[in-house]
Design a protein around this nucleic acid. Sequence first.
RNA 1: GCUGAAGUGGUGGAAUUGGUAGACACGUUGGACUUAAAAUCCAAUGGCCAUUAUGGCCGUGCGGGUUCAAGUCCCGCCUUCAGUACCA
Length: 1019
Amino acid sequence: MKYDFNQIEEKWQDYWAKNQTFKAENNSEKPKYYVLDMFPYPSGAGLHVGHPLGYIASDIYARYKRHQGFNVLHPQGYDSFGLPAEQYAIQTGQHPAITTAENIKTYRRQLDQIGFSFDWSREVRTSDPKYYKWTQWIFIQLFNSWYNYKSEKAEDISELIKIFEVEGNANVNAACDDTIEFFTALDWNIYDDVKKQEILLQYRLTYLAETEVNWCPALGTVLANDEIVNGVSERGGHPVVRKKMTQWSMRISAYAERLLKGLETIDWTDSLKESQRNWIGKSVGASVTFHVKNHDKVIEVFTTRPDTIFGVSFMTLAPEHELVLQITTPEQKAEVEAYIEATAKRSERDRMADVKTISGAFTGAYVEHPFTKEPIPIWIGDYVLAGYGTGAVMSVPCGDQRDYDFAKHFDIDISNIFEGVDISEEAFADKEKTIIANSDFLNGLSHKEATKKVIQELEKLGQGQGKTNYRLRDAVFSRQRYWGEPFPVYYVDGMPQMIDAKYLPIELPEVEKYLPTETGEPPLGNATKWAWCTETNTVVDNDKIDNKTVFPLELNTMPGWAGSSQYFNRYMDPHNDQEIFSKEAIDYWQQVDLYIGGSEHATGHLLYSRFWQKFMFDKGYVNHDEFAKKLINQGMILGTSAFVCKITDFALTYGEDIKIKDDAIEISLEELEIRNDVVKKLESRFSNTFISFDFLEETFNEQFKRFPLFIRAKEVEPLKNIFLKEGFDENITLTVNPYHVDIQFLKVVKEGANFKYTDELVVDKFKNWRQEYEKSELISDINGVFKVFRDVEKMSKSKYNVVNPDQICEDYGADSLRLYEMFLGPLEQYKPWNTAGITGVHSFLKKLWKLYIGENGLNVTDTEPTKDSLKTLHKTIKKVKEDIENFSFNTSVSTFMIAVNELTAQKCTSKDILEPLLVLISPYAPHIAEELWSKLGHNESISTAPFPKFEEKYLVESSKNYPISFNGKMRFTLELPLDMSKEDIEKTVLENEKTQEQLQGRTPKKVIVVPGKIVNIVG
RNA sequence: GCUGAAGUGGUGGAAUUGGUAGACACGUUGGACUUAAAAUCCAAUGGCCAUUAUGGCCGUGCGGGUUCAAGUCCCGCCUUCAGUACCA
């Protein structure tokens, strides 16, 4: 009987579905265990081989825990709101809900064919109104809460109102906007309703405020900091600019300290915790107030080194600092304004890319030193960021490299306050260890002592106090997009009001088009009919009323992370339409025991989820203020792509149209008009039409007046328009890198380069392409014109390097895929996908099958197991158990191979060996395990069979093959009884003729005997 | 720059507390079976030298050190990957 994996796998997948084998009960006698995967975004490209890596690992763990007798919750769902579906909708008019549903169908089919033990009865989809009802509900809870630093938790906003009514806000220590003004109870009680609401908004955990946001023009929306990578949007790589907009924000900064402290209580990877720590960015120091001379103004700075206050040579303000224009003297006005204008023009990205250039301007104004009362000049400089601290720094050039560079550049006096440090040297000594000098009352003190002392003194003067600053900013929560959760919000007199929770969900209305309205409102502004709210909190349809006051609704939608910030709790009770989850459900499941997912979510999803969890904890909805006890990051499986570049020949041939420069090709603007011609010529030159050109407008480099890119022939016109629109003159040069090559050509490359499973290998590498190709591996040189490089990078549709698991499941089966993905290497490691080794695990499965099923049927008998077989079995049990518990899945696959090889060699047929072996293998290769299990006569699924017990006694040996080494080098081995004494071992070894041969008559200086381990003879 | 992780055969990767480096696979070579191929099975496979056999030398990024013994521990470098970055 052959191992017919296709038939077997289909059979058991049907069986599991039909019998709901993996359905988790909320009531059970068994202990619970909650294994969670990060749910996928169902993209149009379908599942690729990288997705299942983490899912397979968690599935093995979940199945293992079932064998251990746990009631396992192992759910799956979809993070189904998001940009790509909407971008697709804009292009095609197809409703995102439809494409999303289609994609989910594909994902489900692909997930099912791998044989995961998910409890699909608990599936959630973030775009399902039944689900996002609760996302909206949480939003309302956040709106109705404030953060009390005294109790260190979120409290109901009604408590705050009570305090205001009785004593005003002077004694309130809350997370709130810095612009808050003090008022008394008297004031509060006479404020009108709008004023009261305005004030409360400054305290709410989600609030509406005008903030500087990251605006992405190409996507038409704002983005959170973690959605921007290297200054461009994470999705699509579009440029991002700073812009002031009225936006919903989440007051995550209130939780900064708890988010930081909480990291100590959870078993997450160190690198991930470190990322979160950096992101939160706690720094302890002091805030110091400086009085501006001849002005009734103060400048507040934050510093981590208040002890260096006597070293302050100048102040530096961010160019955007609000006081700059007020304090600038008439003489300096022109210079300062010019500088401000120049920095405003530079994009954030330029500013980031160019940290070396020192620039700034003197305002002409001075502050007074708090102790010496000396005047200190005030400068502005773009190395000071408006968004961090107060946007102002006290500059201590003898202590800080940047301040030093700035002072040198502008020739500002540098005073030295460090003992024994030569400030003419650019490399500074470790300042934390240096004694303070030239600093009045701080002289002779260490960093620590001086810091303490100076804060005391500043407090006496009323000009400062100790302060802790966090880098973590509040998270912008509005998106000007269609495909997201609508806010349960309407406006009265411009103030936001919550729609009563009983009307939830506020469903996403239909729109004609998914673009902003003509008046520039978000896409929801196009909706003509949707549930909305009147004054009396009655939800009615827009078109059913008239003559009544109509209140505007919130037209923004929530960001992608809204739906994923509590989904792990919703799985506990996913069909509950009365509550987000019942108390019984959360009391039973508590929190996620094991969470597996990618580290790319370190500062996004994983931070926001922790924040919401802490909020839910404060409100008493959950029992733990961390949602996941343990978290493992699976590494990414990378795709192989090829790209082609450098066409020297082409430039020479077409030298009249195109010039070569720095290995790139330049085309002047006039030549753009004949570009179509050029392309035609090129196409005939390289007959197979494989050249096309591509460009991206946003990569225009202003500094060099270049597009470091490729041009696609048909897109010449739009490019030219952009060019002229931007007002660049006609002599501008385009730098063209013509390596975007078409599929036809790559098929040739592919055959030559012997790729497997990669049908399309085109990559757009518009960023740093020279570096990229220099780094990559040259795999082919075609006619000396094209060079083909192979590179390994993240799988993505746009790189044409996606490998999906379907073909592998068909050719080798899901069990092979599961084993192979585990066998590739350690779970956490990044690794390129390469199918070369899959035959290894596949033939292992065939050998396993043959061990049980011979030519004439079942090979398994009731014979007594041999000693050797028992030893093989028990050493396998031990190793596999340890491996699973250490998440070292790759080594258990080897262990299985060894076990099967040994048992085959032993011709083992004993049921007592082969039956437990199946349970060991079943988490890894569940289909074949189920099939063989049933062939052994079981009517029940193997999935709850108890995990075999390891017994030491079968491994006990009577002798050991000792390695005998001379000066640490192993020469030969010697079989000796394990109960032999140290002395006897030494004696036996020394008497051995091989030892004598090695010693050649010399007397050993020393003999080391480690019983059970090794013998080392030192000569 | 800072933080974190990692460097082991032709390849992916093994190696508990320091104790036989290269498990298990892939690939390669040779052989068996076959008209042939596939599949399957057997053998060899870190490098160099030597060989009738026994062998010998070198080997875990580089340079030192500790130790009877170092891939593993310590010090100093180099490289790669990832994250982060005028954070005051």
